[in-house]
Design a protein around this nucleic acid. Structure first.
Lengths: 252, 252
DNA sequence: CGGAGAATTGATATGTCTCAACACTTGTGG
DNA sequence: CCACAAGTGTTGAGACATATCAATTCTCCG
């Protein structure tokens, strides 16, 4: 697999490979705990300071990276708006797409343990993220107000998501993988209140291929095949699901 | 892929599929915090009650399951001894092996968020695990003594491990996957103080195949090929790595 | 010893990758 | 404004790897 030279969206200015992360936010604003709880859809309780704006926001232009592989851990991030992809780049130059993130998703979960980020997150569209400074919340002597648990909960959710994407990624046939990928995207759009049957993909065929471990040509062929079967309709990044039942049941 | 009918080791009594988890430990003993810190190799601080035996141990016979898919979450487990495999079973009956666990590994990390276990863990050999009751440690009002952070750290480590196994699982060619699997096993044995070049696999070819997303025949052929190349020597579950450098560098 | 699963190996079928050509979109600069 | 460059996406043909089916041997345990 050849190295990607662009992580930006199709319709934005070309951004050269491996843009250094922006450390100082261009525009800075603050979020409070209740916004974070809402974004994460946390089902537990936090008892203190729900309205105090203590979480720094960071804006990211399409194509920019939020953090890079090996960079020192500087807290978790919750996506407030926009789309991102997280990739691991190998020595040979091949790239594995670990996840696609949208509103409410957590980024950097492996860093709490490793003290470094293990992968690189790129903005696919202009984004806004909220930083959760884990060190502040796990300091000894601090009285538990539920935030530690929420952070732990969010990281645990990340484990579950990885597991779910395992199943998608490793399905036998490529058309099945693509079908499951579309179901996943549909569900995520639905969870945010958008149409589950009509949406625009934020990523390229190559990115999808990197996520599903197939080539971009195979992704394209699979989409065409699903369209041929009248299950979906595709036009570039625009997806329309004609039969969700058929898409879910699709097993090749 | 056909459903596995045995999750036990080759050399143990045959155990029928889907043994109900043992809820009441046959023999019960208790572990203290310093043992858990040591097993996890936690690099942080815990300030209180290091020697108080508050963590219940559970013994598991080979072939038994620790928890099953969908079962209500009842805490995390740290492996004290033995080997386990964690699988996700799909409706069609296919199985994906999520991970192989040994001493110091964490099990059930996705349950903190989901309130249910999402996969099933089987003992490959007789095992002993230690239960971490997360609810007790994240209760509101509790003063932070570092244990919450350790739990969060351990779950975060799990995210990192999943990511690492991603890379192994998704390498292009099957021989490369098997080579990386062997490197992974070698490193884990080394981390526990055993020989990195001579060890016994706890799992069957079918399990390895389920982990790497290839058939058991392909695993067998890949092992034979690596032996042919003088990189390793194989005899059933016995592995001897002749050239670790060649195994690491192997790219097909 | 017998039975059952584990492991190896071979022949063939099938699916995906690779290489290649081409159409389309978007942003840029003459 | 249009042509151009660069990236995106589609489709085809052939090479290659893995799955599948099948036969055989090995190992362990009762």
């Amino acid at each position: 697999m050849t190295t990607l030279n662009s992580h930006g969206p199709a319709r934005a200015a070309y951004v050269p490979f491996r843009v250094p992360p922006v450390h100082v936010p261009v525009e800075s604003d603050w979020s409070n705990l209740s916004e974070v709880v809402g974004l994460l859809r946390y089902d537990g309780q936090c008892s203190a300071g729900m309205d105090v704006p203590v979480f720094r926001r960071r804006r990211l232009r399409a194509g920019r990276s939020l953090f890079s592989m090996g960079q020192e851990f500087g807290g978790l991030y919750v996506v407030r708006s926009g789309n991102l992809k997280t990739v691991m780049t190998h020595a040979e130059g091949s790239e594995h797409v670990i996840s696609f993130s949208m509103q409410g998703d957590l980024l950097g979960a492996e860093g709490v343990c490793e003290h470094h980020y293990w992968c690189e997150s790129f903005a696919l569209t202009d984004c806004e993220v909220i930083r959760l400074p884990t060190d502040d919340y796990f300091s000894p002597g601090r009285t538990g107000d539920g935030v530690e648990r929420m952070i732990c909960w969010a990281i645990s959710r990340e484990v579950g998501k990885r597991q779910a994407s395992y199943a998608i990624t490793r399905a036998a046939k490529s058309e099945v993988r693509v079908a499951r990928f579309l179901v996943e995207q549909s569900e995520r759009h639905a969870a945010l209140g958008y149409s589950p049957t009509r949406f625009t993909l934020a990523m390229t065929r190559r990115d999808i291929g990197g996520y599903l471990s197939v080539t971009l040509e195979t992704v394209s062929r699979a989409l065409s095949a699903l369209q041929q079967m009248q299950i979906i309709e595709v036009s570039n990044r625009e997806i329309c699901i004609h039969s969700m039942a058929a898409l879910r049941a699709f097993e090749g």
